[in-house]
Design a binder for these strands. Sequence first.
RNA 1: GUGGGCGUAGCUCAGCUGGUAGAGCACCCGGUUGUGGUCCGGGAUGUCGCGGGUUCAAUCCCCGUCGCUCACCCCA
Length: 429
Amino acid sequence: MSSKFAAPKGVSEYLPPRSVIFDYICRGLRIPALAAGYELIELPIFEDTELFTRGVGTSTDVVSKEMYTFEDRAGRSLTLRPEGTASVIRAVIEHGLDRGALPVKLFYQGPFFRAERPQAGRYRQFYQFGIEAIGSDDPYLDAEVISIAYHGYRKLGLKDFELQITSLGDSESRFTHRRDLDSLISRLDLDEETSQRAQKNPLRLFDDKREEIRIAMSSAPLLLDYLSKESRENFDQVKAALDSLQIPYRVNPKMVRGLDYYTGTTFEFVHKGLGAQSAIGGGGRYDGLMEVLGGSKLSGIGFGLGIDRILLALEAEAKSGQSLPGELRYVDLYVIGLGDKARSKCFTLVDSLRKEGFVVEQNFGNRAIKGAMKAADKSGARFTIVLGDRELQSESVGLKEMSTGAVTSVRLDALAKVLAEKSSGLKKI
RNA sequence: GUGGGCGUAGCUCAGCUGGUAGAGCACCCGGUUGUGGUCCGGGAUGUCGCGGGUUCAAUCCCCGUCGCUCACCCCA
């Protein structure tokens, strides 16, 4: 019970059979990205701390209190990556990827780290799948990026989620809006902590869950009403493009994104079955980020999808009737050898069957057949092959179809052919 | 950082107003000398999170502590 070691607080671990679903999610999400010509980028897990303080912004909670920062032996300050976009942009600039065809289209996946208090769907080590498209401000690109996330979720079989979108407009739009919003907030009677938060980013108050704040904010000016003509037209084009793909969305002018680099189109996917941390993914456009990080003045857009939360969402939907997608485990054949000679024969037989592409497990430990059959049953194998002294004599095997229990004797030299005949239903890998 | 809930078998949990522990599932063995699932019989496993206090006696009450969990803040 009280084992000496436990995983560090708040990290997500995935063991079988859940790990199979985790893998299924990772593979599923990248399909729409690959279909749109995005390419994999593998990034470091830690980066120069300054990349995040400058890229994500010191006013964000992520940077100000949630980073795992440490010094290496040469005294450099490094930080476990709390998000992916800054790293992608850094790599694009460092390697001059933006000097080729634009937009640069990349996807990534892996662990991220934030030193927060863990709760349902929020971990200190969590996993994201993300894409970034850099070097175009075409509203169709906004819609494409959103559609890739949307189709990813659908590919996995997710249903009970909502896409929310809004636009943060250009800097003039935000400037005039903020002036009006600040003047409203300054008239509110806020506690110290809240007013400090409001100073950093007044939009955050739209997200506050306290009743009195929500009432006070209900009359607050909405950024969406302050968009310049150009920004508004751009947002309308994004919406029209989504409409043309029949991707449902809800415009949520009070949506708040946590990272300060967002401009223009921003969006979030929210799942109903999740509890307090309901966002299963989100993203948006970032006009100034490339420049802030020392690159050229290119606009980009991307998203990050929370794999941990998608897994929770799939489980939540499974609970309410849907079955979990995909086969959790698949085995074609289970091979049992009885006795030393037969086991030696089986060991090579298993190897050759795998080379033919079958998923094959074998029995270990020279168990009695009863226990071995039990293990075969548990493996989920569709067929079990039994080979003992009798079969060795006749150069055959016993082939048992597990669903019916029928056993047939098959000559060894005909085994591959017989299995091939039966394998119309077998899933070779 | 703040607040609530919970720590009993590998897992999920029960344990009435204090008398040193149980169920289901899983696991192992047998009923079936070479054939799984169902059924029947048998079996192993716990420092009752840790430390202290009250008491003749604490899994149960009190205090502390650690851990988990949910929520706030914030976010994927």
